[in-house]
Amino acid sequence: MAKPKVATASLAGCFGCHMSVLDIDDRILKLVELVEFNKSPINDIKKFTDRCAVGLIEGGCCNEENVRVLQDFRKNCDVLISVGECAIMGGIPAMRNTIPLKECLDEAYLNGPTVYNPAKKIPADKEIPLLLNRVYACHEVVKMDYHLPGCPPPADTIWEALVALLTGKPLKLSYELIKYD
C-alpha cells in the first residue's frame, strides 16, 4: 500500500510551528516511514501532485494569497488541521484586527516615527498579495477538521495527532498537550 501523503503550509505565521514539527527529533525517521510529504516548505514542492491524507496549516489568513492557498489545501486534503494559535485565532498578526486597515498602512508607510518615504506611496504593486481587512482564523475561511493549539504546539502534540490520524485511532490529547502558549 502506498504511504499516505501529508502536505503543510505556512500562511500568516512565523514558521515556528514548522520548527515544532522538526522538533519531534529522531521520530522524524519514523514519520518518513509512515508518510510521504507532498506540497510543503519542508521539501519545497510548490504544487499538489497527488491527493493528501492530511494537511497541516500554520498561520491565519492576512492576505488574498493566504486564502487561495488555504482553499487549495481544502480541495486537496482529506483532513485539514489548524496548527498553532495563528491558524486558530490569528495570533500576533491579528493584533491589527482592532485597528482599521488604512490606519495600519498609514502608520507603517507614512506616519511611523522611523518612516522614510518621500514619495508618500503605500506599496500597491499587483505582485504583492492584497491585504485583507483583518486577519482571519483558518476555520473562518474553510472548514477545518482539527485544531492543535499552542505557540507553537508542542512537538508531542503534533506527533500524537499525526500518528492517531494516520493509524485510524481517535485523536485524544492529554492535559499537558493542550496549551495556548
Binding site: A137, H139, I178, Y180
Partner: peptide
C-alpha cells in the same frame, strides 16, 4: 492573545479552557 500574555499559565480563564478540553 495567550502566546504573549504575562498571565499565561496562571490564568484561570485559560486553565478552565484547558480543563474543558477546548482547542478552538
Amino acid at each position: 492573545f495567550c502566546p504573549f500574555c504575562e498571565k499565561s499559565g496562571n490564568c484561570e480563564l485559560q486553565a478552565m479552557a484547558y480543563r474543558l478540553g477546548i482547542t478552538a
